[in-house]
Amino acid sequence: MFKEIIFKEDAINKPEKGRLPTSIAVLCGVTILALCTLLVGALISTQRHSEGLQQVVSSMLNKSGVENPVTAVLLNFRSYDTLLEIAVLLIVAIVMLPQATVSKSLSLIRVQQSADPGLIMSSLLRFLAPTLIIMGGYMLWTGAYSPGGAFQAGALIAGAGILIFTNVQYQVNMQSFAFRALLSIGLCIFILSGFAVALQTGQFLEYPQKYASAIILFIETAATVSIATTLLLLYLAVAGTQEEFNHDA
């Protein structure tokens, strides 16, 4: 199944190449169709024994420090999952950090005044990027009360970052300490706050109820910074746009 992986970009336009024989493909299709039918049958026939956790969450919501139940689950009731998930993002970020250690520049961002991004790009930069960042900040803030939160905010800010750093005028130095600090600050703050509140309450990640909303917002802000930086790094690394700056130097 994974023995013949094709990497060539235009090979896809020649459907006969590397593809399984039609008979086997049809056989696979029929098998998967049968399995899916069985699964749907199982779903319909199965009695659901429980109401789920909706009741439990809503009864505990006033102790969580936020009003949005999804944020409460993500950052209070099941915050350990979120912590591990931020660690997953860190893995991918580490893989994509450029390896060359040539660049000695310590600054995070380099501006090339001479470069002209063009009219459309500069107006996008001037209006869209700040709007996205403000919307991201709003998402982060509003996540406590209504839909939104660190992931959505991080994605919006990463979008602004992509707009800014895919043109020639601004470049980000991925080898600077500041960039690595931005990548890891989410996990760092999460673990440190978990430990700090444990000194007070005795359980790792158990927030004192009085300060719960403040601590959640603090952790979420740090997580948003890391998520935004990581998503930006993912885009730049996969697109390979900033290689000139980060590899040759």
């Binding site: 956790l53 439990v56 099941r78 359980q203 790792f204 990640l205 158990e206």
Partner: peptide, 12 residues
């Protein structure tokens, strides 16, 4: 050990 002080089924 209950993370964040929330025992099952709510917590981890």
């Amino acid at each position: 050990y209950a993370f964040a002080g929330w025992s099952q089924p709510l917590g981890i």
